[in-house]
């Protein structure tokens, strides 16, 4: 029925006679624009894939993760991994897991993708009652993110040390493709760590009046610096995840003899 531009929904083309002509309930409220489910599905595949990979990689033994002069970040610090008899990799990545697990960006990623709380903006949720968010255990532990940050900061010089070691083989200067990947990994992880929201708060975010406190100008400068990096925090989070994976996979591929490391050795 179309009269003068107005038509009752459902009574037009193809609607059955019994159709009340009214769209109500959850279906009517579903988003009809871009495929909102694409992002959560991608995150489940990529993040889920990385979690499975890192559990597998960190339990296969340090031998697989080392190929002089390279060392996988999943088994760093190397001296610690050497002294832990069982699953040294798993223990080495505890701090990075805590850091990423409580990261403000990853909270969005896993709440939307794995917990469907919500799966997308303005998309109805599966459950209605019982939602506690971060007010109750275990998600309230996210409030401890700053402590994971303190641990993660320590990893940057450790991984920088590993990358520096990748420049030398048998006392000679070594420049390999793996060296470049390890250096890039340190840079990206530093970007991720230094763009952390908790760090932003720590260096200056907690100050209401920079001009009233000691070292206020310096703290303001530091806060601005972290803020500039922080704008890209989700990007840092993803690229550094890939770079960690890339170094580990590269070392494993070398060990598997898939190819030899393209390099220059200065004797």
């Amino acid at each position: 029925m179309t009269v003068r531009g107005a038509e009752v929904a459902g009574s037009g083309k193809g609607a059955s006679a019994g159709d009340a002509g009214v769209t109500t309930g959850v279906l009517a409220r579903l988003r009809r624009d871009a495929p909102w489910w694409l992002l959560p599905v991608t995150v489940v595949v990529v993040l889920g894939g990385f979690i499975v990979y890192s559990i597998w990689a960190s339990t296969t033994g340090v031998g697989e993760a080392r190929n002089a002069p390279y060392l996988s970040p999943l088994y760093s610090p190397g001296w610690l991994a050497n002294h832990i008899p069982v699953f040294p990799g798993l223990l080495c990545i505890l701090v990075p897991i805590a850091f990423r697990g409580t990261c403000y960006y990853y909270r969005k990623a896993y709440h939307r993708s794995f917990l469907w709380d919500p799966p997308g903006c303005a998309v109805p949720e599966l459950r209605h009652g019982g939602y506690r968010g971060e007010t109750a255990f275990p998600l309230s532990l996210n409030n401890l993110h700053r402590f994971a940050l303190y641990g993660a900061v320590v990893y940057i010089p450790i991984l920088a040390f590993d990358a520096a070691n990748a420049f030398s083989l048998g006392g000679h200067l070594y420049l390999g493709l793996g060296t470049a990947i390890m250096v890039l990994n340190v840079v990206l992880l530093a970007g991720y760590t230094l763009s952390c929201h908790s760090l932003r708060h720590l260096v200056g975010g907690s100050v209401d009046c920079f001009s009233c406190v000691r070292f206020g100008r310096q703290r303001y400068g530091a806060w601005r610096g972290v803020t500039r990096l922080n704008v890209f925090h989700p990007t840092w989070a993803w690229v550094s995840l890939f770079s960690v994976w890339a170094v580990d996979a590269y070392v494993r591929m070398l060990n598997a003899g898939w190819f030899t490391d393209p390099h220059l050795l200065f004797r």
């Binding site: 403000y104 909270r107 969005k108 939307r112 903006c121 968010g133 971060e134 998600l139 929201h197 708060h201």
Partner: peptide, 29 residues
């Protein structure tokens, strides 16, 4: 604490206020 940082508020804000990053997270900290 009920906010779980899923950032939909930031996505829809017509004034492009970084609600989650600049207001909610600093308050949580």
């Amino acid at each position: 604490g009920y906010c779980n940082i899923t950032k939909c508020c930031t996505e829809v804000c017509p004034e492009h206020i970084h609600i989650t990053d600049n207001a909610i997270i600093p308050l949580k900290e």
